[in-house]
Nucleic acid binder design. Sequence first.
DNA 1: ACTTTACGTAAAGTATACTTTACTTGCAAA
DNA 2: TTTGCAAGTAAAGTATACTTTACGTAAAGT
Lengths: 65, 65
Amino acid sequence: MENLVREKRIALGMTQDELSALLDVSRQTIISLEKGRYNPSITLAFKLSKLFQCAIEEIFIYEEE
Amino acid sequence: MENLVREKRIALGMTQDELSALLDVSRQTIISLEKGRYNPSITLAFKLSKLFQCAIEEIFIYEEE
DNA sequence: ACTTTACGTAAAGTATACTTTACTTGCAAA
DNA sequence: TTTGCAAGTAAAGTATACTTTACGTAAAGT
């Protein structure tokens, strides 16, 4: 699943470290997310949605199968 | 996290078994989801979103911490 | 040169989403 | 009264999200 985490983070002028702290996850989680190594849990998606002030669907692009 | 899976499923006149088949997950997954035993992965949330034709935010209600 | 900052990798461990199997219960219809 | 369907429980196993630690690299500042 594609995502715009990196773009949105940079748009806010934040480092991966700062973002991870705000979301209460590890920096590794942010790195892996941005690199597309795995999909987030729905709770992490909601946290990002709230922080970035946009819908989950605007951050994560779902293509079926 | 609260969710409206049961309500939306029944509104479509479907059984748990039929829903699980359409989503390609086990019936146990649907039962546990409806019972609120765990949160779905973001991919399952997207599948439900598509099937129910509404935003993820309309199915899953996120309350922080 | 060296330090700091931001980003990256690798690997092993933990938590949790999801599966599989098997058995139970309530209800409605034959 | 028994058969079948929809929903439920329980437990053990697998897949994956996420953590932790430790180390590597390139760029910018002093």
